[in-house]
Design a protein around this nucleic acid. Structure first.
Length: 197
DNA sequence: CTCTGGATTGAC
DNA sequence: TCAATCCAGAGG
């Protein structure tokens, strides 16, 4: 499998969010590889009041305005790290939040990172953005602003066959107050790792 | 400088 | 239903 090229992230942000479904998130760690199938995403667009980039560039959101194919990682509620993939050309502040993944490789280490028991079901490992970042060991210190198109890097997304349209669902985003009506959340129908509340 | 409010989660 | 726990960003 090949690493998704930078051009992939230059498509319209909603298209990127949709097409990321089914692709493979890979984290190389000193203890071995971690991987999972992306099953849930959200798009954050220009002019979107829910986006960190809504009021223009700031120190925190600067990766969103940088080149596509880089990570934007931030701390939510003072507790959880969130992984976004930057889309669009330099100067455009858009990104896709990776909300959930179905673990496929390195399950013992993923569980250990999450402090789950060794027999915890796979669906509990990365069924939410904070859980996903914790499971994959993704932190601001390690990955904010880092290039995710480098095949020899520690974080990347591998190409995979597209998910059939009838297996995709598009709905409103989760956990936001502003821009709550916009249907920019995408997930794979019936996948147990999709977040819920 | 102070203050407010989250793109969440897990415990109560 | 609520606290945990941090800090960006707005307003003075």
């Amino acid at each position: 499998m090949t690493v998704l090229p930078r051009e992939f992230y230059l498509q319209e942000t909603c298209a990127v969010a949709r097409e990321l479904l089914g692709k493979t998130l890979v984290r190389q760690t000193p203890e071995g590889p971690l991987a999972g199938t992306i099953v849930e995403t959200e798009a954050y667009l220009t002019g979107d009041p829910a986006s960190h980039a809504f009021r223009g560039p700031t120190p925190r959101n600067s990766p969103m305005f940088g080149p596509p194919g880089h990570a934007y990682v931030y701390l939510s509620y003072g507790v959880h790290e969130m992984l976004n993939l930057v889309t669009g050309p330099v100067g455009v502040g858009e990104a896709v939040l990776i909300r959930a993944a179905w673990p496929t490789e390195g399950l013992p280490l993923l569980r250990a990172n999450r402090r789950l028991p060794p027999d915890a079901p796979a669906r509990e490992i990365a069924s939410g953005p904070g859980k996903l970042a914790q499971a994959f060991g993704i932190t601001r210190a390690l990955f904010n602003g880092s290039d995710i198109c480098n095949p020899s890097g520690q974080l990347m997304v591998l190409d995979a066959p597209p998910v059939p349209g009838e297996e995709m669902v598009q709905t409103t985003r989760i956990g936001i107050t502003k821009g709550a009506e916009s249907p920019w959340r995408y997930y794979i129908k019936d996948n147990p790792a999709v977040s819920r509340r």
